[in-house]
């Protein structure tokens, strides 16, 4: 009985790992095949052919698209952290009237369906002359990164004891000095976590990037991958699609491997407390 239980448990563990990892493994496998080889179903690598990867970078557009994604995601993280640190300090550490309602408002913005603001944002982006500019994405991504960063940093700062800033307040230090001297050194782990999650979110965003960019060289990678197509349904270049997919996913998988504890704590922060 005990043995059966053990076998069942390990079978379950194997199944969990296999279903999680197999699709990505298979994408790598396909990306290493080209020509007719792609159309034979293989479970193990037979050849290692890097031509799909060479082709992906051949005309330089894909490289530019990766840089676009890196640029947008990085600036989004920097701006939202910059705005969120001071704002969360106010929300977490200074009691003022209407604080709860304000937090509720911020939280509800993060529930906004992107499609609900799409037509309004479209006119705004066009009105500001940002259509087909990467800044339109930096601007519009604030709608999901900012509420999230503010929420997580506020939750984090609330947990710090009152004593840590008492002395500084008594010494007459200004709130800005208190943030810089007292909170920033304590805050950096939370900032790494939220920054990482905001980066991944911005890197993966699709709807705004699809709508606000109109030329190939301005697109970000998710849109670029979604729009790769062949002359007909029978000529879809699956090898190139998989190579591009592996290229944009590998950095994320690496980040997850390195920072998994931080990511898990960030994902569950606030939510579990609720």
């Amino acid at each position: 009985m005990a043995i059966l239980k053990r076998i069942g448990f390990w079978a379950l563990v194997t199944l969990i790992v296999a279903q999680a990892v197999f699709p990505f493994y298979y994408a790598i496998l396909t990306s290493l095949e080209s020509g007719q080889a792609i159309f034979d179903v293989n479970y193990l690598p037979k050849v290692i052919d890097l031509s799909n990867y060479r082709d992906a970078f051949a005309n330089g557009v894909f490289g530019k698209q990766i840089l676009n994604s890196v640029f947008v995601a990085t600036i989004v993280v920097v701006i939202s952290l910059g705005l969120a640190v001071t704002a969360s300090y106010a929300l977490a550490r200074i009691p003022f009237r209407g604080r709860g309602k304000l937090l509720l408002l911020i939280l509800s913005v993060s529930m906004f369906p992107q499609i609900a603001v799409l037509s309004g944002l479209f006119t705004l982006v066009r009105g500001m002359g940002l259509f087909n500019s990467l800044w339109s994405l930096v601007f519009s991504y604030m709608i999901f990164t900012l509420p999230f960063t503010v929420w997580v940093l506020t939750t984090f700062m609330r947990k710090l004891p009152i004593e840590i800033e008492e002395a500084a307040i008594m010494d007459g230090a200004s709130p800005l000095t208190i943030i810089r001297r007292v909170f920033l050194p304590l805050l950096w782990p939370a900032m790494v976590t939220t920054g990482l999650l905001a980066f991944i979110h911005a890197w993966n965003e699709f709807l705004f990037a699809l709508t606000f960019m109109s030329t190939d060289t301005q697109r970000t990678v998710p849109v670029a991958i979604a729009l790769i197509s062949g002359a007909s349904e029978f000529e879809i270049p699956w090898g190139s699609i998989m190579a591009a997919s592996v290229i944009v996913t590998l950095p994320l998988v690496m980040l997850v491997l390195v920072f998994q504890r931080k990511i898990i704590s960030g994902l569950t922060a606030g939510a579990v407390k609720g």
Partner: peptide, 8 residues
């Protein structure tokens, strides 16, 4: 799976 972009 969580780390892989939805489009991918």
């Amino acid at each position: 799976p969580w780390a892989i972009p939805t489009v991918v």
